[in-house]
């Protein structure tokens, strides 16, 4: 038994050094040398392309109604949707889902409130736009989710719907290699594109741009 104990301690410490720290350090070395952008969190000037943000103004395309999204504390419309802050989300920088069951009254009420929210903005919502994600920080929406927001964004920014449609088409990604996963639009990239589009057209359009 004592010989087992000695060996167990030695092997545990060796494992901690080799498959713990040495493995992680080597991995970090390779990651930082070959893929520094990805390894550091895919950060652009405006945030991470892999983490959803709160785009609460109608002049931006909205992401999904996660706690980082526009609905969690929208006192203007009286909507309290989004993730349940008691579970996991709502903590700064922490990920998590609402975990509401399929026959949950709370889920039904939240979804109804979100449908009202979108109708209020003149948008006929798709399922993604009234449901929360698994991570609580879903950075993406489907191309259709973006298309249905065009009337809202066009009204608020003055950018022509056809230009917005072209913008969405440029930022739409199909499933990877044509079959892995689903089609998506990265909301941060889309809104960055929208900002560029507006800054290019501002001199011609002049003061017609409204920032609500």
């Amino acid at each position: 038994m004592l010989i087992h104990l000695r060996r167990a301690i030695v092997l545990s410490l060796l494992s901690m050094i080799v498959v713990g720290f040495a493995y992680a350090a080597a991995g970090t070395g390779v990651a930082q040398a070959l893929f520094p952008f990805q390894a550091n969190g895919s950060l652009t000037a405006h945030g991470s392309t892999l983490i959803g943000q709160n785009w609460s103004s109608p002049r931006w395309f909205h992401g999904r109604p996660d706690d980082t999204g526009p609905y969690a504390t929208n006192t203007a419309t009286g909507v309290v949707g989004g993730d349940n802050p008691l579970v996991a989300n709502g903590v700064h920088g922490q990920s998590g889902a609402t975990n509401l069951g399929p026959r949950s009254r709370t889920l039904l009420a939240d979804t109804r409130a979100l449908v009202r929210y979108w109708h209020h903005l003149g948008v006929s919502p798709t399922p993604d736009l009234v449901t929360t994600s698994g991570s609580g920080v879903d950075p993406d929406i489907s191309p259709l989710d973006a298309l249905v927001q065009i009337p809202m964004v066009a009204r608020a920014t003055g950018v022509a719907p056809s230009a917005l449609r072209a913008l969405i088409a440029r930022h739409s990604h199909g499933p990877q290699f044509g079959f892995l996963g689903a089609s998506y639009v990265d909301v941060l990239r889309l809104n960055e594109g929208l900002a560029r589009l507006e800054s290019r057209s501002t001199p011609r359009r002049g003061p017609s741009r409204t920032a609500s």
Binding site: L107, L108, T111, P127, S133, D138, L180, G181
Partner: peptide, 29 residues
């Protein structure tokens, strides 16, 4: 469809989206 989402009047051709990530979709998830 998710029963609660369908009851709220939003029907889906992409299945149950509650708690799922857009980039994976319902089948991959």
């Amino acid at each position: 469809n998710n029963p609660a989402v369908a009851a709220a009047g939003v029907t889906s051709h992409v299945g149950n989206t509650v708690g799922k990530e857009v980039r994976f979709g319902d089948t991959s998830s």
